[in-house]
Design a protein around this nucleic acid. Structure first.
Lengths: 153, 153
DNA sequence: GGTGAAAAGCTAGCTGA
DNA sequence: TCAGCTAGCTTTTCACC
């Protein structure tokens, strides 16, 4: 993956609806060549998918919270149990006193309480500590341009 | 926004490269009608953008950490200061003892240390506590189908 | 709001370099 | 690996329901 690939990734992160002609022009390539490179980036898994980004508040996700989960046993195999709770958007195994950090979105704080109840129901979970977000400054993706020292687009 | 809109959103979250013909078929609409609805969802800001999802590890973001930031002053106006650090992917004002929670991706732990140094450099910051992620179970978007009680796709 | 068809524009494959 | 070409889709708009 060279510099042109990283420029393509940065463009597609911002807007994946651009035509290959426009995309190629932005990185100094013909439409065909741009298409070829993007296709390979997809095949290699560098581009996982292209997805519509939905406003959470518009679909009942106005309340955001981060929850640390304590446990009495090894949680390394409990991925499915957390994935089964649709309000849990991220689940990470962490180094530290707690075992897991999960990100939760609900419409109301009452629903957040219900999600905490369901997290307690997961085998091995001995406690939770929820931190409610008051305001989100920004949420963005990793920049492909950091690698070779380019300024972010 | 009705049930059909939510079905369209769920489809586009999974794969925004489908044609409107396929998309319409999936929700029981003609291509033209599907296109019209998606266009309106974009105009109303329910769909913020459509973006390529890049594998973080492939572009130098293999190390993930969550950092709580303590401060001596009101941090509600420091959005730009954190946005200026490209490795900071999310920044949230939180309710609790710390002021901010930020999500950071770097290639190495040395680079993580450098990001912590830059966070310390933000006006008002008095301390940080970093939690390194050992394994990420999953990262996904909010489900549009939760609102009206449908099973997640 | 929805349908169906027509025109403009795009994608995706091929070839030659 | 790229540029140029082309056939086949897709998007986008339109009149009509």
């Amino acid at each position: 993956m060279d510099h042109v690939d990283r420029l393509l990734l940065a463009q597609l992160q911002r807007d994946a609806t651009q035509s290959y002609a426009v995309l190629g022009q932005a990185v100094g390539l013909s439409a065909g060549a741009a298409h070829e490179r993007v296709k390979k980036l997809r095949e290699r898994g560098v581009i996982r998918r292209t997805a519509a980004e939905v406003d959470p508040a518009a679909v009942g996700g106005g309340v955001l919270a981060f929850v640390t989960v304590d446990s009495t046993s090894w949680m390394g195999e409990s991925s499915e149990a957390f994935a089964a709770i649709p309000e849990v958007l991220e689940a990470h195994v962490i180094a530290g006193s707690a075992s897991l950090l999960v990100k939760v979105r609900t419409a109301t704080t009452e629903q957040l309480q219900d999600v905490l109840r369901r997290i307690y129901g997961v085998a091995g979970v001995s406690g939770t500590q929820a931190t409610v977000v008051l305001e989100t400054f920004f949420e963005r993706q990793v920049s492909p341009l950091l690698v070779d020292g380019d300024p972010p687009l």
